[in-house]
Amino acid sequence: MFRDELWSAIDEIYAEILAHPFLQGLTDGSLPAEAFRHYVVQDSHYLRDYARALAVCAAKAPDDDTVRQFASDAAGAIAAEQAMHAEFMAAYGSSADEAAGEPVLPSTRAYTSYLLATVYGGSFAEGLGAVLPCYWIYARVGEALLEKSSPDPLYARWISTYADEEFQSTVRAVLELTDRIGAELSAVERAKVIEHFVTTSRYEWMFWDAAWRREAWPV
């Protein structure tokens, strides 16, 4: 299946993600609150453009079912995550509006710019390859972290969201679509999809690393 070919291309990246101190700090509760707040703010910015990317995938989708699938994900899943972020900001004595007013930082800007350029400029399959890591890696991370969860209730809430069966079911549907689309691609097209998939998987690592470092614009 095409999904196996894709995942084998990011085995080492995923291992680095799981080993990253940001995720390790989520499960043992040692992650500094400032790092998690940084992540939440930047993820709020990211999700606005991710929703746009999913909407473009819906517009380019090859059949009505896939149009509905991506349109629904752009509206429903993103809204649910934004609601969760609002809860997190409230826990830090802040608000979603305040988060929206904070700057979009380098790794976020780079990731969303690549994502949007790919979905607008490439084929539907290329766009699918670019948006897939945000679905699939989060599902795998949620599953991996759920057993340990976290002593911190905010971090435990984050983990449970991505381990939840509703989210996992959404991801399974996208993976089934990926296998169907992959079976129809030429070798050249498959290589392009894999390249985008690997690139945005790297951006996933960079996103957590940026939060861990509390990345800021250098000038």
Rank of each mutant, 00 (worst) to 15 (best):
S123M: 00
L128Q: 04
V56F: 08
Q42D: 05
Q69E: 01
Y46V: 12
A110Q: 13
T118M: 01
D63N: 13
P62D: 01
L116F: 01
A61W: 01
L54V: 02
Y46I: 10
D97T: 13
V67K: 10
S30V: 12
C57A: 14
A71I: 07
A99T: 11
T108R: 05
S44A: 14
L128R: 00
S44M: 14
A86T: 12
R52P: 00
A117Y: 04
S107Y: 08
G121V: 11
M89G: 04
D65S: 14
G101A: 15
A74V: 08
G122H: 03
P103F: 01
V104Y: 02
S94G: 08
L105M: 14
L132N: 03
M84I: 06
T112D: 05
A53R: 03
G122P: 02
T27V: 15
G122K: 04
A83K: 12
D64T: 15
C57Y: 00
Y50S: 02
R109E: 02
Y92K: 10
R52H: 09
Y111W: 14
V104S: 01
Y120K: 15
A79N: 01
E98C: 06
V56C: 08
L116A: 09
R37A: 10
S113F: 03
V67W: 02
A130T: 00
L128E: 02
H45Q: 09
K60T: 05
T108G: 03
I78G: 03
A55H: 07
E34L: 12
L105T: 10
T112N: 08
H38G: 07
Y50V: 04
F36H: 15
G76H: 05
A99S: 13
A75P: 00
T112V: 15
P106G: 05
T66I: 08
R109H: 01
S95Q: 09
P62Y: 01
P32L: 13
S94W: 11
L47P: 02
D49W: 00
A125T: 00
A55Q: 09
Y120H: 15
A59P: 05
S113Q: 10
K60W: 02
A75R: 14
L132M: 13
M84H: 11
Q82G: 01
A99H: 11
V67Q: 08
D49I: 00
A53G: 01
D28L: 07
R68D: 00
P32Y: 12
A100F: 10
A130R: 00
S107F: 08
S113D: 07
A58T: 09
A83C: 05
A75N: 06
A74E: 04
L31T: 12
R52L: 14
D97I: 10
A80M: 09
A79F: 03
W136H: 15
A83H: 07
R37H: 03
Y50C: 06
S30G: 12
A125P: 00
